[in-house]
């Protein structure tokens, strides 16, 4: 049986328009449908979708399909398509906008949860005191067990340190000993550094949920902390 055709008596590409309003240089319309993105994308074929088809659905106003496809969570917004696209179209950015259009309750639960936790302090949700305790505990253990590292440092909230170091929440939560090698490296290099007891998590899952205000909030908090400590450099560990 033949499928019903798509009737375009009036073309209303509302989602496209919304994205264009939010991101003026997004260039969705520039697409040449050359397929370069689709040929380079590891997510091509997942959810019967690829970046080119995704753009095409947007252009042709197939908004339902766009808003409902879970492909937006298979696209990692890695921008490899944009990197080589002859028109420089940023599918990742478009996916970000569409993720944000999803009502929160319809988003992947764990992803949203990571962001919600992040907004409180860090993505795993451990209390800040626990982080401080774990750091000091691990440090103490190294100093005791490894005599050559008896001077090892892991300063927290050290005002005026030259470098501020963030810490992915995974280590203090599940594999604290993974923090040690970096401390040792910094020690040997003679670096004056510090952690913070607040907003110390280097990850930021609010980048992925699609709500810019959440993302902005967490970055702002991190920035405030670093400036309060008066550090000249903010080191990201990944």
């Amino acid at each position: 049986m033949e499928k019903e055709s798509v009737d375009l008596k009036t073309l209303r590409a509302r989602v496209k328009k919304q994205i264009e309003d939010a991101v003026p240089d997004v260039r969705i319309d520039y697409c040449l449908t050359c397929g370069l993105c689709a040929s380079g994308c590891p997510a091509t074929g997942l959810e019967d979708m690829d970046p080119r088809k995704f753009l095409r659905l947007l252009v042709l106003g197939q908004d339902e399909k766009i808003l409902n496809t879970n492909w937006i969570y298979s696209c990692t917004m890695c921008q490899r398509c944009k990197y080589a696209c002859p028109m420089g179209i940023d599918v990742g950015r478009i996916v970000y906008e569409i993720r944000g259009m999803r009502p929160k309750e319809k988003r992947p639960k764990n992803l949203q949860r990571s962001c919600d936790l992040q907004k409180k302090s860090n993505s795993t949700g451990i209390p800040n005191e626990d982080f401080v305790w774990v750091v000091n505990d691990v440090l103490e253990e190294v100093r005791q067990n490894e005599p050559q590292w008896k001077d090892l440092q892991a300063p927290i909230d050290k005002k005026g340190a030259k470098y501020y170091l963030n810490q992915n929440a995974k280590e203090p939560t599940v594999e604290p000993e993974e923090m040690v090698p970096l401390w040792k490296i910094l020690h040997v290099a003679g670096i004056d550094w510090t952690y913070s007891s607040k907003w110390w998590d280097g990850a930021n899952y609010c980048l992925f949920t699609g709500d810019p205000e959440d993302w902005e909030y967490t970055v702002r908090k991190q920035a405030e902390v670093v400036d309060e400590l008066g550090c000249r450099y903010y080191i990201n560990t990944e």
Binding site: E2, K3, V6, D7, L8, K9, R52, L57, L60
Partner: peptide, 10 residues
Amino acid sequence: DQIIGERIRL
């Protein structure tokens, strides 16, 4: 439309 694989009515 070959890319979305659907017939379009104009």
